[in-house]
Amino acid sequence: MSDNPPSKATKGRGAVANTAGRYARTVHQAEDDGWFQDGEPAPNPRTTVTEERARSVLSRNDSPDLPFDRSVNAYRGCEHGCSYCFARPSHSYLELSPGLDFETKLFAKTNAAEVLRAELAKPSYRCAPIAMGTNTDPYQPVERRYRITRDIIELLAETRHPFTLLTKNALIERDLDLLAPLAREGLVSAALSVTTLDNHLAAKLEPRASAPHRRIAAIRRLAEAGIPTGVMFAPVIPAVNDHELEAVLEAAREAGATRAGFVLLRLPHELKQHFRDWLDAHVPERAGHVMSLVRQSRGGRDYDATFGQRQRGTGAWAQLVESRFKLAWRRLGYSEWRSKPLDCSRFMPPRPRSPQAELF
């Protein structure tokens, strides 16, 4: 068989299928060859990493509902395997599946720091905070080996360039030696995405991300090091994790988080079917109810990408979630996300690399 049988969960993976992306020119069809037995675990594909040389790493956006206009992603694909990840459809541009391919066929931009150095050195460059962790996680497991995120942080520290970090992995603690001094200069803030406090649910939703209690512990360590730290309850999934919203905000606040946010479940492109497959595999008795609530908060559709609505949704259920968040936010004493902007005045453009080295 070339693909997993439908609705068969693979241990340690978030996707339950590997259907072709929307741009694929070749489509693989799974066929029963007589060897697969009912109840047998689905084959578990190994993670492979392709090293690539990027031509540009600074991505820009003009979205009115994002708090940044530029970002850097060190990797394409993400081994965390979050079943709900809105970035999965980006693998279609590589003619790969947004399903299992997204979390098993990864690409590492090994020259990311070098390319970013050249982009920051351009006379036309104007400093503004760079967001890291907007598409794929900068601290996913392969970062232990490649250390691309750390290379980028070292460059940003050298040039005193402000940046933000968003992750689901406690590996961020590794870089405290860099982050703490930068925080004292107002150059960095961080946030941990915590979707649930239930280890069993997390193992199904986001199988290779850090366990929930490790993420809370990471918030504590970052906060104790003086790094402005927030928590993102993202995504809010109706009838799956929405009941934990207040508990997550309370645990993060107790650990030292000072800012908080949330994002409603987003299902762009192929993710609509991939998430349905996940529901059928893990919570079949609730699958229909979950999707009904999703459509109620998306104007009767599975997803609405309209600016201003894609993050929060519309309708009664979405309004209820927002009201609950605001009440908990006020009660717990969180501050505004942009209450203390990062300092852009310290930026020093990097000097171009010279074969004659530096004389002074």
Rank of each mutant, 00 (worst) to 15 (best):
A87Q: 05
R13G: 11
S189C: 09
E250R: 15
E143Y: 09
D198Y: 05
P89D: 02
A225S: 15
E40C: 12
L106W: 06
K105T: 03
R208F: 03
G21N: 04
R346Q: 15
A121I: 00
A255Q: 08
P355S: 10
I148M: 08
G77W: 05
S59M: 14
R266S: 03
R330T: 15
Y125Q: 05
R298M: 02
I219N: 00
G315N: 09
R286E: 07
E185A: 03
R76P: 00
R286H: 13
R253D: 04
L249P: 01
G313H: 01
V263R: 00
Y146S: 13
A255F: 02
E173S: 07
Q296P: 02
L66K: 14
S90L: 15
D302R: 06
V16C: 01
S83C: 03
C344L: 11
T50M: 08
L267E: 03
N199Q: 08
R276L: 07
A112K: 06
W35F: 14
R46F: 12
S59G: 14
T10K: 00
S56E: 09
D242C: 06
A328R: 05
G308R: 03
R174C: 10
H91M: 14
G12T: 06
Q29H: 15
S124T: 02
P129Q: 07
D137Q: 00
S339W: 08
D3K: 10
N199W: 04
K122T: 02
R298Y: 09
V321T: 10
V321H: 09
Y23Q: 00
N241Y: 13
T149F: 08
A180Q: 11
R13V: 04
E336T: 10
A223K: 09
A118D: 03
Y84W: 10
A328F: 10
C78F: 05
H274P: 01
N44S: 15
E79F: 10
A9V: 08
P212I: 05
R331L: 11
D33L: 14
A316L: 11
R286T: 12
P123I: 06
P141E: 07
R144I: 11
D69C: 12
K109D: 00
T47N: 10
E40L: 12
G14I: 01
P228N: 03
R174W: 15
R346C: 05
E224I: 11
T149K: 08
T195A: 01
S56N: 04
A170L: 03
D277I: 04
P123W: 06
L100A: 09
A108G: 08
S7D: 15
V240N: 08
S92R: 03
E185K: 11
Q296N: 00
T164N: 11
E250S: 14
V231Q: 04
P162A: 05
V290N: 06
R346A: 11
R324G: 06
E336Q: 14
H80W: 04
G300Q: 04
S210F: 07
H243C: 13
T164M: 14
A225W: 13
A252R: 05
L197V: 09
P207H: 06
V283K: 02
S339G: 01
R25Y: 06
A20E: 01
E358M: 15
E31S: 14
L156Q: 12
F36M: 07
R253N: 04
S2Q: 13
D343I: 12
A281N: 04
I219R: 07
G99D: 06
A20Y: 01
L293Y: 11
F233T: 00
F347V: 03
A203F: 03
